[in-house]
Design a protein around this nucleic acid. Structure first.
Length: 269
DNA sequence: ATGACAACCTGTGGGC
DNA sequence: TGCCCACAGGTTGTCA
């Protein structure tokens, strides 16, 4: 479900409902997520006001008074605001009950997501992350610099969180198409000029997707329950065997690191 | 350091 | 209709 735009959409959706509220309790129905939810989490979080709702990479960070609640939606997670008493569905693993009668409900069928309580801004999962793709720090020069000596395919290179965070499979495919770069090209054999185009494509795509509420595949909904509309604009993702929207050639599909890559062999070199 | 790959889970859709 | 397999938006850990 979530790539960076979906996580940002979720953050924006829940922010007005949680900031300024106080956590009454945390109900953990299923502690066995990507990492076990610490048993002490509910006790520590209860009673604390929510000061801010931030995002780093695909992690949502809810700053409480003494700790930070760190949420990852994994592959299939969602976080929704709803009345605390709403009937629970299958895979509604955690409720963060707020003092206005609502709760933040975490649902995640595949349980690849996680919930941590940080006592500071530091956490092993957050250290060693690359720059935010929408920051000034991330640009073509950065990609070019980091690609020196790397023989891995550029697609896998830009999906490496040490290089840049938040570029998942959908947007990696789309950005490479937009920049005219073949996904299997070795990262170390791409010019600075082409990396400038790629960095720009990543920014443009992520911004556009955020603006439209994320990419709805299956049934993704943001924190406010609205679907995203970016799916209609995908150029290559999910379009293998269909005609390229730019040259009408047939889009090809290959597998890289067990993820599917769709590209146009005419438009991408 | 880099890269290849398995692992963590459930749900869905296609093919037979 | 039903069954089995392949595959799905992410990340980490391990090993060569």
């Amino acid at each position: 479900m979530p790539e960076l735009p979906e996580v940002e959409t979720t953050r924006r959706g829940i922010e007005p409902h949680v900031v300024g509220r106080r956590v009454v309790s945390v109900i953990v129905r299923q502690a066995s997520l990507r990492w076990p939810v610490e048993a002490a989490l509910p006790k520590v979080a209860a009673g604390q006001a929510v000061l801010r709702a931030r995002r780093r990479a695909k992690y949502l960070l809810l700053d409480l008074e003494t700790h930070t609640l760190m949420v990852h939606l994994g592959m299939s997670g969602s976080l929704r605001v709803m009345p605390a008493g709403a009937p629970t569905l299958f895979h509604d693993h955690v409720d963060i009950v707020l003092d206005d009668g609502n709760c933040l409900r975490y649902n995640d069928p595949r349980r690849f997501g996680s919930l941590h309580l940080l006592s500071s801004d530091e956490h092993p999962l957050l250290s060693n992350l690359g720059p935010e793709p929408l920051s000034a720090e991330f640009d073509g020069a950065w990609l070019y610099h980091r690609a020196r000596g790397r023989r891995a395919a550029v697609k896998q290179f830009i999906m490496d969180g040490h290089v840049v965070v938040g570029v998942g499979n959908i947007y990696a495919n789309e950005a490479l198409f937009m920049a005219g770069i073949h996904p299997a090209r070795a990262a170390g054999r791409i010019s600075l000029e082409r990396y400038r185009r790629l960095a720009e494509a990543i920014k443009v795509l992520l911004l556009a997707a955020i603006e439209q509420g994320g990419t709805t595949l299956r049934d993704f909904v943001g924190g406010d329950g609205k679907p995203g509309y970016f799916a209609q604009q995908l150029r290559v993702y999910g379009r293998a065997q269909l005609a390229c929207r730019q040259c009408a050639g047939i889009l090809r599909e290959i597998r890289q690191g067990n993820r599917s890559s769709v590209y146009c062999s005419n438009c991408q070199r």
